[in-house]
Nucleic acid binder design. Sequence first.
RNA 1: GCCGGUGUGGCGGAAUGGCAGACGCGGCAGACUCAAAAUCUGUUUGUGGCAACACAGUAUGGGUUCAAGUCCCAUCACCGGCACCA
Length: 809
Amino acid sequence: MDNYYSPKKIEKKWQDIWDENKAFAADNDYRKPKYYALVEFPYPSGQGLHVGHPRPYTALDIVARKRRMQGYNVLYPMGWDAFGLPTENYAIQNKIHPKIVTKNNVAHFKNQLKSLGYSFDWDREINTTDPEYYKWTQWIFLKLFKAGLAYKKEMPINWCTSCKVGLANEEVVNGVCERCGSPVVRKVKSEWMLKITEYADRLIQDLDGVDYIEKVKVSQKNWIGRSEGGEVDFSIKDKEDKLRIYTTRPDTLFGVTYMVVSPEHPVIDKYKDEIKNWDEIVAYREMASRKSDFERTELAKDKTGVLLNGLTAINPLNGKEIPIWISDYVLMSYGTGAIMAVPAHDQRDWEFAKKFNLPMLQVVSGKDGAEVDVTEAPFTDVETGVLINSDFLNGLEVKDAKVKSLEFLEEKGIGTKKVNYKLRDWVFSRQRYWGEPIPIVHCDKCGFVPIDESELPLELPEVDSYMPTDNGESPLAAMTDWVNTTCPCCGGPAKRETDTMPQWAGSSWYFLRYTDPTNKEALASKEALNYWLPVDWYNGGMEHTTLHLLYSRFWHKFLYDQGVVPTKEPYQKRTSHGMILGENGEKMSKSRGNVVNPDDIVNEYGADTLRTYEMFIGAFDLSASWSEDGVKGCRRFLDRVWKLQDILVDGDAYSADMETKMHQTIKKVSNDFENLKFNTAIAAMMAILNDFYKKGEINKAEFSTLITLLNPVAPHMTEELWQNMGHTDYLYQQTWPVYEEAKTVESTVEIAVQMNGKVKAKLNVSLEDTQEQVRARVMETASVAAALEGKNIVKEIYVKGKIYNIVAK
RNA sequence: GCCGGUGUGGCGGAAUGGCAGACGCGGCAGACUCAAAAUCUGUUUGUGGCAACACAGUAUGGGUUCAAGUCCCAUCACCGGCACCA
C-alpha cells in the first residue's frame, strides 16, 4: 500500500496536467462575467524567489481559483519587470549581456513559480525588456510628449554617487539612494520630465471612487501634499518689483514681521548692486548649495540665515516696512521660493526669529480670549484661534479670517487664491543602458523631435560597455553610429536621446498588455480593454504606494484622456500584504543569515504546505515571522486531510449531524477568502477536520465539499484526492460549494446564564423559545437559584441564542 | 513634530458590544515502540484548592453599558510612512 501523501510524486504531475489542458487560460469570450486579479510582477533578480513572493501570489491565486469555480472568466497573469540596475550591474561584473542575464533569471523565476502551482495564465506572460513590449512603452511616451506632458529641463537632480544615475524624488529615502544606500547629491543636468503635477488634483479626487485600503489612500494624499492658500505680492521699497509669496495662513498677514527668500531666489541677483553685505550673501549661498538635500532637511534643524541688507519689503495690508532675510529653510522648489514670516504662529518662523532676535507680533488669540504666550512657543492652532491686532479681521475665527483676507487681497489685486502641491514633476531620464531608449531626436534646427511611430520599437543598440560614466552620460552616448541620425522633421543631421527610461515606465501600464499581450496594432485591442478593465483586485507591497501606484494611475489617466483606455482608474481595489520576517523577527537578509529559500520548503514539505503555511501565518496585511514549526503544523494538517480517505464512507448528502457545520464552514471559508482572512478560513477547515476525526467517519459528499474548499489553497493534493475518489474529470472544473443561510444556524444552541455579568450556568435552548420559556428553564437551574438566594432581581436581559443575564442585588 | 497602524497565554494568532484565548505551534502526561522519530489520545491563561469552585486577567488610568479585548477620553510602548512643503 503506497497510498500515503507524497507531494513530490503528485505536484509535478498536476502542474503538467494543468499546463497541457491550459486549465487556467483566460477566455476571450467577452460575454462571460469577468474577474481580473493582479499581483505585482516581480523583478527577476539573480537571487531567485524569496519566501515573501508567494504570500501575495498565493493569496490572489486562491481568489482566482475560487472565482473560476464560481463561473467567472478569470484573468490572473504574470510577467517580468526586467529592466533595472541589478541586472545591469551583474552584467557589467560578469561581462554577460544584460539580455542573457535577464533570460536566465526569468527562466529560474518561472521554474520556481511553476513549482508552486499558481494558476497563472502563462500564455499571457509579458516581459518589459521585450522590444514588442517596450515598443508600446515608447509609444505612450511619444503620446505624452505630443500632449506637452514630457519636457526636457535643466534642473538640479538627485544624483546617486554610486549608481551614477539620476533619481526621482520618490527614489531618495532619507537623503540616500533607495536602492544602494549611497549618498545622493544635487547635480544640475538636462533631464526629461513628466508633468505628473498636472494630474495632482485628479489623483487625489478619484481616490474617492476606488476601494483601496485606507493607508494606501492616505499615503498617496500625503505624498501629493495638496495645500490651499494664497499668493500675495509684497512691494519692495522704492522698486518696481514685487516679492510674491505663498502662504496657507493669509489670516496672519498683520503678524508678518519679516520675510525670507530662498538662497536661489532670483531677486537676490537682480539687486546685487544694492545689497550692502554681498560678500556675506555669497558665502551663505555657497554654503547652502554645498549641502545635500539630506543636510538641508534632516540634519540642519538649526536655522541659519543672513539679512538681505539693502532691500526692504512693505506689508501690503498695513504698509509696515519689514526686513528681508535669506535662509535655506525656504526652498526654491516649493511655492514661490519666498515666504512671509509670522513667528508668533509658525514653528519655523518662530525658531528663526528666536535665533536672530526678530520681533514677534501676536495676531491670533486662544479661544474666548484665552491668553497665549507666543514668546514660549508659537500658537499654531487653527481650530480654536480668534484674530486680534488685525484691523478688519479682528474677532474672526481663523477659518473665516482666511477667507475674508483672501477676498480682500483679490479685490485689491495684491493676492490670489492658490493651491500648491508637494508633488513634483517626475524625473524620467536615467543615464543607464538597460532601459527603454527614449524615442526622441535632437536637431539643432527643429529642437526635440519625436521619431515616427512607425519606427517603434526603437531598439537598444549593442554596446561594448554598459559601464555608467562619471560625467553623467548614458553608456549609449559613446555609440556615435547610433547617436548620429537624421532629423525626422527637416532631414538634417541630428542626435538621438541617449538617456533611457526609469524602471517605473514599463510597470506603469503592464496590466493593460495582459489583456491582449500579442497585439501588434495597439497596446491592446479596444474590445479587450473594454472587457477586462478595470483590474478588479490588485495586491502589492506598501513600498510601491508612492512610486509605482501613483505613476501607473497617472499614466492610466493620461491614456483615458487620450481615449486609449475606457476607465479613469486602473485598479478598482488595492490591498497590501505584510512582510515575511525571519525566525528572529528581523527582516530576512543574507547578512543576518535568516533567509529561507522557498525551494527548500517545497522540497522538504511540498508546495501545498508552503502555500498553506504562508496563508496561515497570520493576518495578511501585517508582517509575520517565519517559523519552521509552523510549516510542520501545516504539513500535519494536509497529512490529516489525506488520511480522511481511510475513514471515507458512502453518502451523497451531508449527514444530519454535520449538516449545519458543513454549511457554516462553506460560508466562513467563502467569505474569508474574499476578505483576505486566509488564516481563519484555514482554521475553520482544520476545525471541521477535527470534528470528522472525532466522529470517526466522513461521507463522500462531505469529503468532496471539503477538498473543494481546500483546493484553492492546496491545489495539487486536492486534485489527487479527487482523482482517488474515482472521478475522471478534474477538481478545478467543479463548481464552488454553496451554502444555505438557513442551514448555517443550529436549531438548538447553548446559551450562558449570567448573574451580574458572571456565568452561573449553561443551558441548551431552542431558538424558537420565547424569553418566558427560557426564563422558566433558567429559574429552575440549581446554580442560578442558589446564587439568587437572598437577592432581589432588578433586571433581566435575554439576547436570543446568546445570553441570559440577571441583574440582582 | 505630523499622519497611519499595532499592543490579547510560553509563541503565531481568534473573537457582528454578549461565555476571552478559536485554530496552529510549543510544553506536559499517556498509547504504540527494545528505543527514538512519526502517529494517535488527553491536557495546557494565572493564582489558590484533592475537588466542586473562587478570584484575577486582553499595554496603563478613567468613563459609557445589564454586559467592553471591542465604544469614548487620557497616557505609555512598539512598528510603518512623511517631515524646514510656508
